[in-house]
Simulated scan of single mutants.
Amino acid sequence: MIRALYTSATGMKAQEMLIDVTANNLANVNTTAFKRSQVNFADLIYSTQKPAGTEIAAGVQTPTGMQVGTGVRPVSTNKLFLNGTLQQTGNALDVAIEGEGFFRVDLPSGEARYTRDGSFRMDSAGQLVTADGYILAGGVRVPPGVTIDKINIGTDGTVTAVQGGATNATLNLGQMQIVRFVNPSGLSSEGSNLYAESAASGPETQGVPGVDGMGTLRQHALEGSNVEVVTELIGLISAQRAYEINSRAIRAGDEMLSTTTEMIR
């Protein structure tokens, strides 16, 4: 059997995965703080028919060998944590991270998750929560009587508010902290703009925004997706053409088999 049939089949499967990942990137082009994924490929094991340096005569060695590859395989998909474009919203509880870092949120189970989506809301207890209701770690709480438009979030994460009334006293509501990881690409994507720590990402390092390499915070803004539509479309076209070329290689192998069969008849 011609090996090209199986080799080209691995190429078609690889391009299918690339198209799947590209489609997910394009689907999330307007998702807040979404990070695009890329697929990494590696060639498969080689069939060595003659090693390089084989002695063909006394004192004579071949300068090159003879190896035939068996195809390609996807090795990994990784997130590219490049900053997206900041979009001004005017909402006092919208916070974007400029630079490295993640917000930590606590699930009802007590587990920690991480996000760069800073579109926060207030729950019935005045706590800052995500759109899904997960509480922002750090204990920031807005007391009764303080309206959202009176809340101020500094670049260092300090949360203050002006209390209504005759005094107009400034209240300290808490400190937003962010975390970062040695290898953010090793985080596990959980959906809903959340990531989970993994053995590859390493443990979280907590810090104050703007200190020791942590990103700073920008109130009244959200980070957009870092997907570039033109780049994704070019990749989509390239993957489609590669898929077609691999299918033609299979067709060529099939025609060779057909010719061989006709010779036997």
Results as ranks from 00 to 15, higher is better:
residue 178 I to Y: 03
residue 163 Q to C: 07
residue 85 T to S: 09
residue 13 K to D: 04
residue 201 S to N: 09
residue 82 L to I: 10
residue 222 L to T: 06
residue 195 Y to W: 13
residue 140 V to E: 02
residue 96 A to M: 09
residue 252 A to R: 00
residue 200 A to V: 14
residue 151 I to S: 01
residue 234 I to F: 01
residue 162 V to Y: 03
residue 190 E to C: 01
residue 90 G to D: 08
residue 210 G to I: 12
residue 228 E to R: 10
residue 21 V to Q: 01
residue 35 K to R: 14
residue 242 A to E: 03
residue 133 G to I: 15
residue 115 T to F: 06
residue 191 G to W: 00
residue 24 N to Y: 04
residue 99 G to R: 09
residue 31 T to W: 07
residue 145 G to H: 08
residue 198 S to P: 09
residue 43 D to I: 10
residue 81 F to Q: 04
residue 33 A to S: 13
residue 30 N to I: 10
residue 13 K to E: 06
residue 50 K to H: 04
residue 245 I to Q: 08
residue 103 F to I: 03
residue 46 Y to L: 02
residue 5 L to C: 06
residue 212 D to A: 15
residue 9 A to V: 10
residue 144 P to L: 15
residue 6 Y to N: 05
residue 229 V to C: 07
residue 257 L to V: 13
residue 49 Q to Y: 13
residue 102 F to I: 01
residue 158 T to K: 10
residue 143 P to E: 12
residue 84 G to N: 02
residue 95 V to T: 06
residue 9 A to E: 01
residue 91 N to C: 07
residue 160 T to E: 08
residue 181 F to I: 00
residue 56 I to S: 04
residue 207 G to M: 13
residue 183 N to Q: 10
residue 227 V to Q: 05
residue 107 L to E: 05
residue 50 K to N: 07
residue 47 S to F: 06
residue 127 Q to N: 15
residue 187 L to K: 02
residue 16 E to A: 10
residue 60 V to Y: 12
residue 85 T to D: 09
residue 235 G to P: 00
residue 8 S to L: 06
residue 226 N to S: 11
residue 30 N to W: 06
residue 167 T to G: 06
residue 35 K to W: 09
residue 152 N to Y: 08
residue 206 Q to P: 07
residue 106 D to E: 13
residue 117 D to Y: 08
residue 179 V to Y: 01
residue 177 Q to G: 09
residue 101 G to C: 10
residue 205 T to H: 11
residue 249 A to C: 05
residue 257 L to H: 01
residue 37 S to L: 05
residue 257 L to T: 07
residue 95 V to Y: 08
residue 139 G to T: 12
residue 69 G to R: 08
residue 136 L to T: 13
residue 196 A to V: 06
residue 209 P to Q: 12
residue 27 A to W: 02
residue 7 T to G: 05
residue 21 V to W: 02
residue 158 T to V: 11
residue 154 G to N: 08
residue 34 F to A: 00
residue 17 M to A: 02
residue 120 F to S: 01
residue 104 R to K: 13
residue 19 I to M: 15
residue 194 L to Y: 05
residue 163 Q to D: 12
residue 154 G to H: 05
residue 44 L to R: 11
residue 159 V to L: 10
residue 26 L to W: 01
residue 98 E to M: 13
residue 53 G to P: 07
residue 256 M to I: 15
residue 187 L to D: 03
residue 54 T to D: 07
residue 233 L to C: 02
residue 176 M to A: 04
residue 224 G to L: 04
residue 86 L to A: 03
residue 161 A to V: 04
residue 254 D to P: 04
residue 169 A to S: 15
residue 39 V to R: 02
residue 102 F to Y: 04
residue 153 I to Y: 07
residue 123 D to I: 15
residue 75 V to E: 11
residue 24 N to Q: 07
residue 261 T to W: 03
residue 78 N to P: 00
residue 109 S to E: 08
residue 30 N to D: 14
residue 49 Q to E: 09
residue 230 V to H: 02
residue 26 L to R: 00
residue 10 T to Q: 05
residue 112 A to R: 09
residue 164 G to W: 05
residue 11 G to C: 09
residue 94 D to Y: 13
residue 104 R to Q: 15
residue 18 L to A: 06
